[in-house]
């Protein structure tokens, strides 16, 4: 992935860039909004990671100007501002995702992957993985020859997982995108729903598709391809 990190804290940026490069990403760095805007317009990136509070040009203004110039590169805001209004302002300025500091690296990783692949997946109405098929319009799910009956929310959950098949999705991504709540819960509520979905999806089949990755999240993928993650 080609990434641009715009962050005014050089120490935090160093640490993050190290991790990203370890995972094979190509990372460019700008230490304020002005430099970030210049780089983002010059070079092509897959995703921009933008801090909100920065000298010279803050993240919101930078992204707004970028969008005005017609650039549609996905933007993930990385910020210490965590209120609902801050979040709304981030999306209004043209951000695509919003992550509050400090964050687990795996959370950022999962969200970057999701942002990169989002565009190509949004329009599909027939989603498939191995022998699993979802018809989004007819609201039918089949695995092999067998039809799987899902409740409305289970359907949304599976749809989200299918649209991000092969990617790690985190608990907070699911809570935000499937249930539309953006606060953390104290209980294992997402795990319970995942395990119920898994019961319907995998129980009667030999090859499980829905996997839990300890400390990272969940992934919908054929077992033989799990090694890449």
């Amino acid at each position: 992935m080609r990434l641009l990190l715009v962050e005014d804290d050089p120490m935090a940026a160093d640490l993050l860039i190290d991790r990203l490069r370890c995972d094979g990403d190509i990372v460019a760095y700008a230490e304020n909004g002005e430099a970030g805007l210049a780089q983002a317009t010059q070079d092509a990136f897959d995703v921009l990671i933008v801090d909100r509070l920065m000298p010279k040009l803050d993240g919101l203004t930078m992204v707004r100007q970028l969008r005005e110039q017609g650039a549609d590169t996905p933007v993930l805001f990385l910020t210490a501002l965590d209120s609902v209004d801050d979040r709304v302002a981030g999306f209004a300025a043209g951000g695509d995702d919003y992550l509050v500091k400090p964050f687990a690296y795996e959370e950022l990783r999962a969200r970057l992957e999701a942002l990169m692949r989002r565009k190509q997946l949004a329009q599909d109405t027939m989603l498939t993985l191995a022998d699993l098929t979802m018809d989004v319009i007819a609201r039918r799910v089949t695995r092999g020859a067998q039809e799987i009956t899902l409740q409305a929310r289970e359907f949304s959950l599976l749809e989200y997982l299918l649209r991000h098949k092969g990617q790690v999705v985190t608990r907070s991504m699911l809570l935000e995108n499937v249930w539309h709540y953006n606060f953390d819960t104290q209980t294992n509520v997402i795990d319970v729903h995942i395990s119920r979905l898994r019961n319907k999806l995998d129980k009667e089949f030999s090859a499980p598709l829905l996997h839990t990755l300890r400390g990272r999240g969940f992934v919908l993928q054929s077992a033989d391809k799990l090694g890449d993650l």
């Binding site: 804290d9 120490m11 935090a12 640490l15 993050l16 190290d18 991790r19 509070l53 210490a80 501002l81 965590d82 509050v100 500091k101 400090p102 964050f103 687990a104 690296y105």
Partner: peptide
């Protein structure tokens, strides 16, 4: 409170990244 949030989160972010590393 906003400044506090920002100033406390920045070192915590670095600390977390270091520990992860």
């Amino acid at each position: 409170t906003d400044n506090l949030a920002h100033d406390l989160r920045s070192p915590l972010t670095r600390l977390r990244a270091r520990l992860e590393k």
